[in-house]
């Protein structure tokens, strides 16, 4: 029951943000649409209700989102900007292990890697990510993991595992 309510609320919030207006008409239609989508979707989207209740996970998620969008993205962008001028490129595809088991944790790691300039997850197979890396510092999976995804994975564990 809790997951249905929470997913409905998130979707309602999304509806209102997208619509950009809070008249009674928007709130009424938003609640109906969010409930119609949220109740069936919550069964597909949420498998462990207890994690939804854990406030610590939300704090980690909020902190990570803020840090990712400011510090991590900034550093990755500046690195690529520098490479544009120096043309010090050593591209290649490396294989890195991913220890997170939850599907959202793995998704978070994959999109975090892809969204930072310089690294793109090109495939996922048997628990490994294949990452196209602008500067292959090491082809050893563990070393590559430390350089590419170790920080993302720490947060993925705190938020979703």
């Amino acid at each position: 029951m809790f997951r249905e309510v929470l997913v409905t609320l998130w979707l309602f919030l999304f509806y209102i943000v997208y619509t950009g207006s809070t008249t009674p008409y928007d709130i009424a239609t938003g609640l109906v649409v969010a409930a119609l989508v949220g109740v069936p979707a919550s069964r597909v989207l949420v498998s462990d209700e207890r994690k939804l209740l854990d406030v610590k996970r939300y704090i980690h998620l909020f902190y990570y989102a803020l840090k990712y969008m400011t510090v991590i993205e900034f550093k990755a962008h500046m690195d690529v900007v520098k490479r544009v001028f120096t043309m010090r490129l050593n591209p290649g595809i490396v294989k890195i292990p991913v220890y997170a088991k939850s599907r959202y944790g793995r998704l978070l790691i994959a999109v975090s890697i892809t969204n930072t300039p310089g690294t793109v997850v090109v495939d996922e197979r048997d628990g490994w990510f294949y990452v196209n890396w602008i500067d292959v510092a090491s082809t050893k999976p563990e070393e590559a993991r430390l350089a590419i995804s170790a920080e993302f994975e720490d947060y993925a564990f705190k938020i979703f595992e």
């Binding site: 509806y15 997208y18 649409v33 969010a34």
Partner: peptide, 12 residues
């Protein structure tokens, strides 16, 4: 799920 919500907002 988000597409359904956005599309409903566009139509309504």
């Amino acid at each position: 799920a988000l597409i359904v919500v956005v599309s409903a907002s566009i139509a309504l």
